[in-house]
Simulated assay, not measured.
Amino acid sequence: MSIAATTARETVQIASAGRSRDRNPASMVFLGALWFSLFFGVMVLVVLITDTAIDGAGRFDANLLTRYDSTLVPERTGFRAGILGTIWLMMFTALMAVPLGIAAAVYLEEFADSQKWYNRFIEVNLQNLAAVPAIVYGLLAVAVLAIVGINTRGVMLGGAIALALLILPVIIITTREAVRAVPEEIRQGSYALGATTWQTTWRQVLPSAVPGIATGTILGLSRAIGEAAPLVMLGLYSSVRFDPEGLMSAITALPIQIYGLSSNSQEAYREAASAAIIVLLVMVLGLNGLAIFIRNKFQRSW
C-alpha cells in the first residue's frame, strides 16, 4: 500500500472518530440543553414584548409622543417631556463620556507603560468598575454635584454625570479592544516612514479602529438610555410639563416616567406605561441597529 493511500486512510479514520466523539450521548444532551436554553430565553423575551405591546396598543397615538403628563385626563397622558429629556441626556452623556473614554483608552493602550504600578492599578479598577451596580454611580454623581456646590435636585447635569460615569468603563474597555485589534504591521510601517507615536495613533490606528469604537460607544449609550436607578438617586421628576432648556433645567426621563406610571392604580396610566415601554424599546433597538450599520460600513478585513 502506498504512503499516500495509508495517509488518506488514517485521515478518514481520524475524521470518523472525531465525528463519533462529537455525536456521543453526553455531547448531544449538552447541545440540546444549549439550544433549549437559547430558545427558552428568546421565547420569554418575545412573549414579554408581545404582552406589553398588547397592553399598550390602545395608546399608540400622537398624544403619546406630543403631549405632557396629564393628571386630569389619564387617557390622554403623554411622554413628550420624558422622550425629549432622554434625548438631551444621551447627548450630554455622550459629550462627557465619549471623548474622555476614547482618550483614556488610547493612552492606556498606546502610550502607558504597563510596568508602572499606577497603570496596572488603573487597568484592574477599570475591569471592576464595569461590574459596579448602576445605583452606585447615582450616589457618586450626587457627591460630585455636592462638591461643586450644586444642591438642586433633578437637573440634567446630574443625570448626565451619572450616566457618563456609568458607561465610561464600557467605552474604555471596548475602545482598547478595538485599538488592540489593529495589526501591529500598520504601526511598524508608519514608524518605518518616520512617523511619531502620536502621528501613527492619530492617522493610522484610530481610523482603523473606528468600527469597534463606534459600536462600543453606541452600545454603552444603549445601556444608559434604559437606566432608571441612577436617575432616581438624583431625584429626577416623574412628572414634568415643559421641554428641557439646558444643563441646569429640571427634567424627567422615559424610564423614570415608566417607573412612576406602572405602579399607578389607574388602568389608563398603566396602559400608557406599556406603550412607553415599547417606545423606549424602539429607541434602544434603533441605537443597536446604528451600531451594527457602522460596524458593517467601516469594518476592514486584515
Rank of each mutant, 00 (worst) to 15 (best):
D69G: 12
R120P: 00
A134Q: 06
T86F: 01
A275P: 03
F40S: 15
L290C: 10
G194N: 04
V282I: 13
M1P: 06
A162T: 02
E109H: 11
A162E: 01
T252C: 04
A4I: 13
G58M: 06
T71E: 12
G85Y: 00
Y118T: 08
G78R: 03
Y107I: 12
W302D: 12
D113W: 08
V205A: 05
I147C: 07
L168H: 01
S2W: 03
V182R: 01
I173F: 00
R203Q: 13
P230E: 04
T197C: 06
T52V: 15
P25D: 06
I278F: 03
M91A: 15
L168P: 00
V73S: 07
I186A: 07
L65S: 10
I278H: 01
V29S: 12
R19L: 15
I122R: 02
L72R: 08
I251Q: 00
P211V: 13
A26D: 09
M156N: 05
Q199T: 13
T11P: 00
P255H: 00
V132C: 09
F39D: 12
E110K: 06
P255D: 02
P244T: 08
V142D: 05
I213S: 01
L31R: 15
I218G: 02
F121M: 12
L206R: 06
I172C: 01
A291R: 01
P183R: 09
E271P: 04
Q199C: 07
Y237G: 06
G289I: 09
V29P: 02
F36K: 07
R23Q: 14
G216F: 10
T252N: 02
A97G: 07
M43I: 13
T66R: 12
S249Y: 02
M233R: 07
Q266I: 10
R120K: 14
V124F: 11
T252K: 00
E177D: 10
F79L: 10
F30R: 14
Q266L: 11
V12R: 15
R153H: 09
A17I: 08
V179N: 00
P133E: 09
Y237I: 07
T77F: 00
A195N: 07
S16L: 14
W35M: 14
I173G: 00
D113M: 09
L281T: 13
R203P: 04
I251T: 07
A57V: 11
G82E: 01
L231V: 04
D51V: 15
A209V: 08
V240A: 05
G18Q: 13
I161K: 01
T77C: 03
A275T: 04
P183K: 09
T200C: 09
L145D: 07
S274C: 05
A57N: 11
G158H: 01
L95E: 06
M91W: 13
M91C: 14
I218C: 06
L72Q: 10
W117N: 11
A195E: 07
N151D: 14
A53F: 10
V179C: 03
M28F: 09
A192R: 04
A5R: 15
I173A: 06
L231I: 09
T86A: 04
F92N: 03
R223K: 14
